[in-house]
Design a protein around this nucleic acid. Structure first.
Lengths: 156, 156
DNA sequence: ACTCACGTAACAATGAAAGTTTCATGTCTT
DNA sequence: AAGACATGAAACTTTCATTGTTACGTGAGT
């Protein structure tokens, strides 16, 4: 696939759960983000381990937020979905005996590591609540049109 | 595959060409970086368009540096290999009608765009010559062992 | 002519994320 | 206790981008 969508999708889900649905089953969440319930469970498992959401089995079960959005940073979400590799470029993983390649890899790794640290710091400084407020601004500016028309579902 | 290796591999090649081989055929370069001659031509084509290297056909032909390493930045190389996507994470490409998703995507895109700009600025500030000097430091520190043992070739 | 080397198109292999199927386990309702 | 509902988890398939490979055309030198 193109790139790792988990972080983006999870943010989407967390805001919906806080602002609109409260509790939701994997199946319902899957429809929000146009995917499969099993994919949802895979992603949510990491969030549960970190206490961001909780799950309950059986009749009436499903997923629920376990803490306020203001206490969740984008970095928390990034880590929770398994901290996938940030970059699409870079040297190969295994080290080489060639000193030229070693020098190139070291420079590139150092530069990317610095960029990664800065980006993660940015993520740590943004809460999911802030993004939820971004959404509410968009909602207000749109004249309160239907805010989350997932799959053309008009009523439901 | 794991990630895009072109930038790393091209840096490797450029330094070898400047410091060790001068002119080289696609086949020879392919051996340096353990790949195929066609892959090399694909990568080098972008560099030629930007005047970083030149190629000559026929007997005695091959590739040659067209300017000093001090005048080539890592960003030049990045652009020359086709500016592949920097990040492995992010929202999906196509826009969504869901205002929540729009807000999430906008935040994420903005944050990544800022990180990308900073990283590219870093790349622009590093010349290939600097990396070549990194190599020479490593070479000196190693007590002048065989610096580029590609494929266990002892002599040749 | 013949060989060497790049230029290019077309196709196969590889690897990671996402999608899917299947079954087990736990929970609520009746 | 039986049945429906929902998560948990393993195994497999699909998809997509990069890389690897084959094949053929073109230009340059001997």
């Amino acid at each position: 696939m193109a790139r790792d969508l988990r972080m983006s999708r999870m943010l989407h889900v967390l805001i919906h759960m806080d602002r609109h649905v409260g509790r939701a089953t994997s199946e319902q969440i899957a429809q929000m983000i146009s995917t499969n319930a099993v994919v949802v469970r895979r992603m949510m498992a990491g969030l549960r381990e970190r206490g961001i959401v909780s799950s309950e089995k059986g009749h009436g079960g499903g997923w629920q937020l376990a803490c306020p959005l203001a206490e969740i940073s984008l970095r928390d979400v990034y880590e929770a979905v398994g901290h996938p590799p940030l970059f699409n470029i870079g040297p190969q993983a295994d080290p080489s005996p060639c000193l030229v390649e070693q020098a190139v890899d070291a420079r590139l790794d150092a530069t990317l590591a610095e960029a990664e640290a800065r980006l993660l710091a940015q993520f740590a400084a943004i809460t999911v609540e802030e993004v939820a407020q971004d959404f509410e601004r968009r909602f207000a500016d749109s004249g309160h049109r239907v805010p989350f028309p997932w799959h053309g579902a008009t009523g439901e």
